[in-house]
């Protein structure tokens, strides 16, 4: 094994890692708010809204990420009329796909606070919105943090799917180098270690959040 390959390729691998992290961050930035909206819709009293949001969540959670990627990669140029670049179709895919998962996390966070806190707030003359804002959401967010952190790690792991359409994130960069230098072992082991370090650190953070409860 020739580990020199890794030393030489570090700049490219670093760039790949940054690309993956960037992709993750942008996806989460749009996906989480969308997920919150869908969760609110799901909890609404209006059947048309809650059923639509429920269907949205079920559809995107039943399909694998790769298939959704293929759907958008195929459909978007057709709908928009012109070719779409890889990055755009990736981001649209990730944002919509993961919003379904965020929606579930937000929904169960809110429901974990329970109806009785809602009743307490309403009975003191607060409106529904005020009760959500001051009483339910602060507690829900604290309850959701571990699951949210884990989901962010999952998004980061999901960016490897970009490999399939040739987008140059970490895995793809590594495979290009592996092909060029004919050193797959060193490259893939290194990439595995990099992913491990990032994801494991994230999971430690999630565990910290889990420990913080009201004393």
């Amino acid at each position: 094994m020739d580990w020199n390959v890794i030393v030489v390729s570090l700049p490219l691998l670093w760039k790949g890692l940054l690309t993956s992290l960037n992709l993750t961050a942008v996806s989460i930035a749009f996906s989480f708010p969308l997920g919150c909206l869908v969760a609110m819709g799901r909890l609404s009293h209006r059947p048309w809204l809650s059923n639509t949001c429920a269907s949205f969540v079920h559809v995107f959670r039943s399909n694998p990420l790769i298939l959704i990627l293929f759907w958008f990669y195929f459909l978007m140029p057709m709908i928009i009329g012109s070719a779409i670049n890889d990055l755009t179709s990736l981001i649209v895919t990730f944002v919509i796909f993961f919003s379904a998962y965020f929606a579930e996390i937000v929904r169960s966070g809110i429901q974990s606070v329970g109806t009785r806190q809602m009743q307490a707030g309403l009975s003191s003359g607060l409106t529904h919105v005020q009760t959500m804002r001051h009483i339910i959401m602060p507690q829900a967010i604290r309850a959701m943090l571990p699951a949210l952190t884990t989901q962010c790690i999952i998004v980061f792991q999901g960016t490897t799917v970009a490999y399939i359409i040739g987008y140059n994130e970490l895995l793809h960069s590594a495979s290009m180098i592996a092909e060029r230098t004919v050193r797959p072992i060193e490259l893939y082991l290194t990439v595995a270690v990099i992913y491990f370090v990032v994801c494991y650190s994230g999971s430690l953070l999630a565990r910290r959040f889990e420990k913080r409860t009201y004393s």
């Binding site: 009785r116 806190q117 307490a120 003359g125 009483i135 009201y214």
Partner: peptide, 18 residues
């Protein structure tokens, strides 16, 4: 909500905001 300002309620499980 306005009507409820005239009615105070106390619950079995207190339901203070933690």
């Amino acid at each position: 909500p306005k009507l409820r300002l005239n009615i105070g309620m106390v619950f079995q499980h207190f339901e203070l905001y933690p």
